[in-house]
Design a protein around this nucleic acid. Structure first.
Lengths: 343, 343
DNA sequence: TTTTTTTATTTACGCGCGTAAAATAAATAT
DNA sequence: ATATTTATTTTACGCGCGTAAATAAAAAAA
């Protein structure tokens, strides 16, 4: 490799002895030039350090190879993990993903979409804030940019949605708890940030009805994405005041459960499934930390792999078909019950 | 706002009745055009929906307004949190941050730096992997791109380093534990991924020596960034086998401590500071989850605000001075002891 | 070998903007 | 009012590449 720096494709083309447009074709698809030409280019690429200017490329291409990935809250390891997998798959497919977090704020979600527009992405994978999303804004965005929603569905928005089947989560946990001798109460935020929470409450009510058990929904106060603290405070209020309606609590999600476990520990309430324990606690999501809580958390796990791979595949299909799908696609994946110490 | 779409600055300039270069100047700095001209432009901006093409801008500017933020592991809420603050500050200063996670892999860290090069960033905030970083690669990168290291220092690399003072962390926790009646053992990974870990061990040994106490370092096996599981396995081995050298354990970082607490719970070892407890546990970092462990974790907190603001300020200063600082700057911030239930 | 078809390469133009240098207008001094 | 200085604006050029249309080369058919 020569130390000489090549400033543009023209210069590189001169060095190879081929016209610049042919070099350009090579970079867009090495198979679209003659093998002998390809060889010459790749030999030169070994000798000289040249890379096309990404800004010039993106300015001239009708569509970039950029993909936007937007999650509502990146400090939540659940989203960090799914973002990691999505990034990986985009890179493997030759795209350039950019990761953004709305940090739970509508204004930021809107700003991210605006700035995404300016990088003319081929497509966007969006996990919206949900209830507090600016639906008009997202709708306008989706009209211009091929977008697949994931994690949290907003009816009618985007070309499709890929997520987990909330009923599958709740039905398994409710069935497990009741089969093993408990009548679960449902512990949730009164004003959940995420639409999945509502679906989970509905699923709980439906399952309890189906099993002929009396449902008890414990709705706690709190706003925002600081779920652990909200869960802890809510649990302290509930546990300090009256007795729980039953000796088993099913949390809407793991982060609330983490807060609940923290409150139980503070109050000396022993959680677990053996006889010495006061209550059982189960939850949903299989949060990365749920196996390290004390006790470890019985929960229902997302099928990360399926959700992420299907989301990416759907987006690629959407991009290849010019940004339009025949009809909005929805795909839900079932959960898997993970039995641990808490229930 | 008219529905008409404006495709370029030329067209917009025509609509305003001013030449394009003047419009260009306005977008780079509204104060550099005559007030009357500015008014005309801003009135037109209200009426028409026009935004300069970011790719064309970046292609032609000698330096972009992009800033790269690279963290070793985004699924760690600690880094997610600091990345959030850094992003915010960059945006407020008129820059466009891009967030990347090395996911604990050297190859990824290298790839991220390579792709960062291609977006010609004004500067980069890099929290390197540390021990497993490809130092040559980072060094070459830093020669071309103004870079400030944060969180984890690599001697001599980058124009500066901003982080926390590991001795401040450890001295406070060791002092606290010993003052309140315990002789802390130090719980750490034998081959820590992060250079901070080595500094913390050294600080522990120094403090114990200064206090005339006998040090005990418990070095557990394990590779990678899955610290909680490593801590849990290591703790199970230690606790199952021999007795602990003392009834108080100081963990190198909170994530290991979370694993340790999990192991203690499994084994029925009660953690806390009152008489009914078997051991006390303290740690370092004030991880976002450390207040929700059972019991809540006594730890030493980073000064997030100071570290992030100083990192960003140093980078801006570096950028403004043309990418060179007189000498490599190092700045460390002291920790703050957070007393909770575990010790 | 010559003609036709297919594939690859080159020519020519444009993308949307930054920016130095030249021209003009405004402000100040005479 | 005129000359000088200073602040703005315009002219003119270039950035590095994509791409349609024109040309040339290779492959296939006659």
């Amino acid at each position: 490799m020569t130390t000489r720096r090549i400033k543009n494709m023209d210069e590189f083309a001169g060095l190879v002895g081929i016209s610049r447009p042919t070099i350009s074709k090579y970079f867009n698809d090495p198979d679209r030039v003659r093998p002998s030409t390809r060889l010459k280019i790749e030999e030169a690429l070994e000798r000289y350090d040249y890379r096309p200017n990404i800004f010039a490329i993106n300015q001239n291409r009708r569509l970039t190879k950029n993909i936007g990935i937007v999650v509502p809250y990146l400090a939540d390891p659940f989203f960090a993990e799914i973002a990691r997998v999505l990034e990986r798959r985009c890179i493997d497919a030759g795209y350039t993903p950019s990761l953004f977090s709305s940090h739970g704020q509508q204004s930021l979600e809107n700003a991210i979409l605006d700035s995404l527009r300016s990088i003319k992405p081929a497509g966007v994978l969006l996990a919206p804030l949900g209830r507090i999303s600016d639906k008009k804004h997202i709708e306008a965005f989706c009209r211009d940019v091929p977008t697949i929603l994931f994690d949290s569905n907003i009816e009618g928005l985007g070309a499709g949605f890929v997520g987990s089947d909330n009923f599958s989560f709740v039905s398994q946990t409710v069935e497990y708890l009741s089969r093993t001798g408990s009548t679960p109460s449902f512990f949730e935020m009164k004003n959940p940030a995420n639409p999945n929470a509502n679906k989970r409450r509905e699923a709980y009510l439906k399952m309890m009805n189906r099993l002929n058990l009396e449902p008890h929904v414990i709705s706690i106060e709190g706003e925002g994405w600081n779920f652990e603290e909200i869960g802890r405070q809510g649990a302290l209020n509930v546990l300090n005041g009256k007795k729980l309606p039953s000796n088993s609590v099913l949390c809407s999600n793991d982060r609330l459960a983490i807060g609940l476990l923290s409150a139980c520990h503070e109050l000396g309430i022993k959680v677990g499934r053996d006889d010495t324990c006061h209550i059982r606690v189960a939850s949903h999501d299989d949060h990365p930390y749920s196996r390290f809580t004390c006790p470890s958390l019985t929960t229902a796990a997302h099928d990360y792999e399926s959700v992420s791979s299907h989301a990416v595949e759907t987006l690629f299909r959407l991009i290849e078909s010019g940004g339009r799908l025949d009809k909005r696609e929805e795909k839900l994946f079932a959960a898997r019950l993970i039995m641990r110490g808490s229930a």
